[in-house]
């Protein structure tokens, strides 16, 4: 196991390095945008003097590398600075929003991942049957429809026409867990529909890819029933690509949900990011981008570790 641990540590180190490079890119990109925060704060009423004064006050007159280091050293301990719009701490602004996004992502993932894998296995078992084709077409449809469109369709049928679920996912304080689940069901379902297809198709493909292997033939020649051949003999060897796709989709659930949040008026980090961009609230934009980057890196790291843990050659070296 020490081999695995050292691989994980190495990946973690590489991940941190990647994050550092990304932080430079984010900072540089924001830096290149026309105008700065002082202009954004003062807006139309800006004069040369009060701009200069505000810049000095906010430290914007410092050279970029110093401001970057300043920002980075704060970010490392969770201090992302002060929002240019509200004047509140960025960390406090983002915190609850990010928690909401994580909640919604987890909600969707808990449904989507098992459904996708089970469907993928079933479809691999019933490959080239009518069921396979129907599932294929259905998932292709859901994957190729934009999520706001899916969202509105769900609202129309599950909320407006039947009234089963609330159309707007506004959160209040003091809601119970079940109220929360009910309130956010439609956005979660929308996201499930978007990500299930990808994961299911990968599960199907990587299982079918293995079916020509000699050990699968061997399992069949031992009289193993078809479902067991797939679940016990193919699936354990198919995990690596499946886990990778799952990780990518989980990252998407966290970072790609802006449209769904807008449609359902859900107070997540995506909406916050869009607001911040329009209002030129650079500290918030930078913090959001950094969080997204960290999410991607962490989930991909988790996928790598998962792939290692499911590979007996790496788990049990000679």
């Amino acid at each position: 196991m020490s081999g695995v641990l050292s691989i994980v540590l190495k990946r973690l180190g590489l991940g941190l390095l990647t994050l550092l490079i990304i932080s430079i890119l984010i900072f540089g990109a924001v830096e290149m945008l026309p105008g700065d925060m002082a202009e954004a704060v003062l807006g139309q009423g800006a004069t040369a003097e009060n701009l200069a004064a505000l810049r000095a006050q906010m430290g914007l007159d410092q050279p970029a590398p110093i401001r970057y280091l300043d920002w980075l050293s704060g970010a490392v301990v969770g201090d992302f600075g002060i929002s240019a719009v509200s004047g509140a701490s960025v960390a406090e602004t983002i915190g609850p929003r990010f928690r909401n996004t994580l909640f919604l992502a987890a909600y969707a993932a808990v449904i989507a991942v098992p459904v996708a894998i089970i469907l993928g296995v079933v479809v691999a078992l019933l490959r080239d049957t009518l069921f396979d084709r129907v599932a294929n077409v259905a998932t292709l449809t859901s994957i190729s429809s934009p999520e706001f469109f899916l969202g509105y369709i769900l609202i129309l049928y599950l909320s407006v026409k039947t009234g089963m679920f609330p159309a707007i996912a506004k959160l209040n304080d003091g809601m119970t867990f079940f109220e929360l689940l009910d309130r956010t069901f439609l956005p979660a379902l929308t996201m499930v529909l978007v990500v299930v297809a990808h994961m299911m198709r990968m599960t199907r493909a990587s299982i079918i890819n293995l079916l020509a292997s000699p050990y699968i033939e061997m399992a069949r020649l031992k009289g193993t029933p078809a479902w067991k051949v797939i679940v016990k003999h193919a699936l354990p060897n198919a995990w690596a690509p499946i886990i990778n796709v799952i990780a990518l989709n989980l990252a998407y659930l966290i970072t790609g949900v802006v449209l769904v949040e807008v449609v359902f008026v859900y107070p997540g980090i995506g909406q916050l990011l869009v607001d911040a961009v329009t209002k030129r609230d650079f500290p918030v934009v930078q913090a959001c981008c950094l969080i997204f980057a960290a999410t991607f890196i962490l989930l991909n790291l988790a996928a790598d570790v998962g792939a290692i843990l499911t590979n007996p050659r790496l788990r049990h070296p000679k």
Partner: peptide, 24 residues
Amino acid sequence: RRALRGSRIAYVAQSAAASFNPAH
């Protein structure tokens, strides 16, 4: 037919290295 395989008729493949499942 399947009930015969493995119980009354068994098979030994050319490449045992490829015919044993690497995961078990």
